[in-house]
Design a protein around this nucleic acid. Sequence first.
DNA 1: AATCAAAAGTTAGTGAGGCTAACTTTTTCA
DNA 2: TGAAAAAGTTAGCCTCACTAACTTTTGATT
Lengths: 210, 210
Amino acid sequence: MQSDDKTDPANRTSYHHGDLREALIGAVQQLIEEDGAENFSLADACRRAKVSTAAPYKHFKDRDEILEIIVMRAFDEMADHAVAEIEKHGPGTTESMVALGKSYVGFATTRPALFRLMFGQNPKINQAGDVQDEGRRCFGRVIEQVAIYCRSNNLEADALNIATRLWTFVHGMASLIIDEKYQNVVPDLDLDVMLAEATTDLLPTASKEV
Amino acid sequence: MQSDDKTDPANRTSYHHGDLREALIGAVQQLIEEDGAENFSLADACRRAKVSTAAPYKHFKDRDEILEIIVMRAFDEMADHAVAEIEKHGPGTTESMVALGKSYVGFATTRPALFRLMFGQNPKINQAGDVQDEGRRCFGRVIEQVAIYCRSNNLEADALNIATRLWTFVHGMASLIIDEKYQNVVPDLDLDVMLAEATTDLLPTASKEV
DNA sequence: AATCAAAAGTTAGTGAGGCTAACTTTTTCA
DNA sequence: TGAAAAAGTTAGCCTCACTAACTTTTGATT
């Protein structure tokens, strides 16, 4: 039975019944995306992984440690996405900046529960040094791209400031979409149009020089 | 003992031990602001109100019904705040639009847990018809003020669109502040400056005509 | 004024979840 | 080979949301 499910058997270095650590992380991630990060139970994840509810504590300090790991991986994935998207549209162009925003909002809408977990307020997760480092690292990669935009357009403007404005806008947009707040109040909103217009308005050149 | 705590005795129309309904709503609101909306327990609120843990169910269907009430009241309060702030700065002025944004962010920072509850994703609360109506009503009052701005500045622009852009930005800002995300990445950010600049950039006139 | 039903509270109990302790089984490696 | 460490298990603790069944208070009607 080599076609056994749990991660490549070749990778099983030191295990009883497969790679439970990864199996649990995967199960939790699935459950979060199904039920939301507040509603999932570790006990459910155990059932999915077919182990007792005490088993996780051989691999993780507590429930939150699993969430921390998931959040760190998600930050990484998000930054990969963003940078890839910019490269596709040509670094330094206004379009690439719009695409950057789109990738942020896109990540949020395709993985809402994960996004909430990353940007929500769970003190234990937020205060974890590892998570903070990872967040900073990812944001750094994105700022670099905004800096390229600035140089390409001969702007004195501080890339950090510009990045922060754009971040603020797209974060608001992502949040309001996934928490279904636009629906109730501006149901006919064209999201793509708003994002493109707001991005150009918030970028120093595009709206004021050209 | 007329100086008894629980709401004005004159208002006790049909009660055993005071106005438990309001006492519980108050206790829950306090606990939420102390511990966050995900962490509070109804049992704690009962202890504060000095009743058994079964008592709430004589007044509310379940835990979430209390949260719904709190959210509805908060929407109302928020809109009151916003409109008052605009009137203080003179309706129709750019400053009043900045003040509008500031009042939004201010509400979030002074009552973060409440803000999260209002704009977070709790299906039971979001889908409650009453809550949706209340949200729409409050947003309507604010849009009215933006419409006044548009008329005062002879703008064709759709007040709804402008309001939505501003909303999106300040919502992002409020969220990133209370979830402590700027701290990690742009610790020296001047929030007031960013808000003022972004507001004028996002308003049609201010940045493009004048 | 006495009565009685509804309103507002209580205690006791269920089932779920997080986590720990103490035990067992498997794996590693000296 | 055999002992220690690693990875599981069962049983149990505590808390929580919520329900059922009982008691006390209230106040509306005769």
